[in-house]
Write a protein that binds this DNA or RNA. Sequence first.
DNA 1: CGGAGATACTTGCCCAAGTCAACGATCTGC
DNA 2: GCAGATCGTTGACTTGGGCAAGTATCTCCG
Lengths: 313, 313
Amino acid sequence: MDDSVDTPLDRQIAAFRRFTRFYTRHLGVLREGLLDSPYPLTEARVLYELAQAPDLGAADLARRLGLDAGYLSRILRRFETDGLLAREPVPEDGRRATLRLTEAGRQEFAVLDAASRGQVRGLLARLPDAARRRLVAAMRTVEALLDRDAPAPWLIRPLGPGDGGWVVESHGRLYAQEYGWNAEFEALVAEIVAAFLRAHDPAREGGWIAERDGVPVGSVFVVRQDARTAKLRLLLVEPEARGLGIGRRLVEHAIGFARGAGYARMTLWTNDVLVAARRIYEAAGFVCTAREPHTSFGKDLISETWERALTPE
Amino acid sequence: MDDSVDTPLDRQIAAFRRFTRFYTRHLGVLREGLLDSPYPLTEARVLYELAQAPDLGAADLARRLGLDAGYLSRILRRFETDGLLAREPVPEDGRRATLRLTEAGRQEFAVLDAASRGQVRGLLARLPDAARRRLVAAMRTVEALLDRDAPAPWLIRPLGPGDGGWVVESHGRLYAQEYGWNAEFEALVAEIVAAFLRAHDPAREGGWIAERDGVPVGSVFVVRQDARTAKLRLLLVEPEARGLGIGRRLVEHAIGFARGAGYARMTLWTNDVLVAARRIYEAAGFVCTAREPHTSFGKDLISETWERALTPE
DNA sequence: CGGAGATACTTGCCCAAGTCAACGATCTGC
DNA sequence: GCAGATCGTTGACTTGGGCAAGTATCTCCG
């Protein structure tokens, strides 16, 4: 049924859609289990939100649940006439009214809530504890990765298990994709990383990962070139995480470390095609001191050496 | 709001329900994105099932999608009058008729399918590759745990850009996690991978990735030890993908390649703590020929050499 | 200050989505 | 050969929810 080339991304898309279909069906089943309740799904959701987050206005609620304002208005009126809901006008805004459950409303909700909780308990009880934990962790992961209206916070942390491999993987993947470099480059990165992992003086050398949502999105290394010169290496930021200033912060972090480690200057080696990195280096006070054509990674390139002094703070 | 004792199970239940609410909202958003399509959600789902699994009867379909038989009957009639659907009576059962999309139906579906796929692609494109992989893996985990009999298709493919790095990353991460090995091991793997990427004879050496849903879940390499001896290396299967026979198939694949490349025997090096791998090697006809204590990766270990003959097919 | 445009909420109108019950045709097991 | 299930259809009905117009209020900006 598929005539297109089947890339990993296509397979990821297929997996995503299969999950969506799966969960649609799953939600249908959950819903049926609660059929004896007098409230249809949407009303139950409204009740739930009202119980969880009091002092909402109707518009907030509609946005939160993705409901039509008109439809919601009717539901709320019904709740009100049934004595489940009270509205209080907001003094500072004549249009709005905060919604609050009455005691009766809270009781109705408690019944509903207990039923739903019992249903989920029944589901979870069928799983061994380790599986339950994995399930919950996986759900959290999906949620965190899909729900990113708020720009996810990120941090810089030292290298941990697997991170060296990630640096190799991301360099190999990205430089192949963006510049067409071949496996020779991935091999070079692997050698650099291997040498670093094999032996480095933590006082004078270091590697760091920029991480967002528990996922690596960038890297930078500082290694010793000679007693007075630090070398910056393996700076990378995933395309999807660019524009957040992560690259700049990584370089600043590296400079700070090198300064603290007592180096007098810092150098780095790059290629002229890497224009985004170039701007970061310039902004960080580096100056290009040498350019040299070479043939590597399956391409004709011009390598560049950049340098800057490190004066103690 | 909660007066009950808060056990881990309660928190798991709460997380489960939060995810369910989250995904309900998420589905609402996905649905809105496809509003311009002429088919409402349910009809689209029916179309989808028909395209995926041909030769269903109406009752099968209703069960699969959790739809009312009467409602479905009407939808199907509409499809039929629109020329999207053909019914064929089943000879051995006069009540049933198998449903099959016509050429026009398949085309309608293709349009719908492309739109949905494009929407998901847009969502995934916002994520860095590592995050995409984690997302898909997490979805797969949820699915597998909630629906024990969900089959998981996977395949074995040659190494591509970034895969060498993934091999380093997964080895470093897993052996640290499962056996507490230190960065020396990740360094060793990086060196092996670097040497392989740097130069290998494709006729006599190879590396492969087991991939599921576009996510790497396993690896195996064959390298030359001497003219007559192949060496199997870097066999690994992610914990989430174990128990599916992937390890066995990777070893079989490696043996098949080595045999085709003209080697007379195959050898491999492992450690006695890796009990799962041991069983795979035994089943594949390997015999342990030497054991030797050593101290590596921050642990006292016993290394093992295994061998088997390779007779031409 | 005043007017343009947003926002909060309501209402009427409408159709899509789904339920329920009854019905004929056919199959399966005893 | 009959009871009971299953497949599929139909008519009558309820519910869920989208859309657009309208009122009242607020906010921003010249």
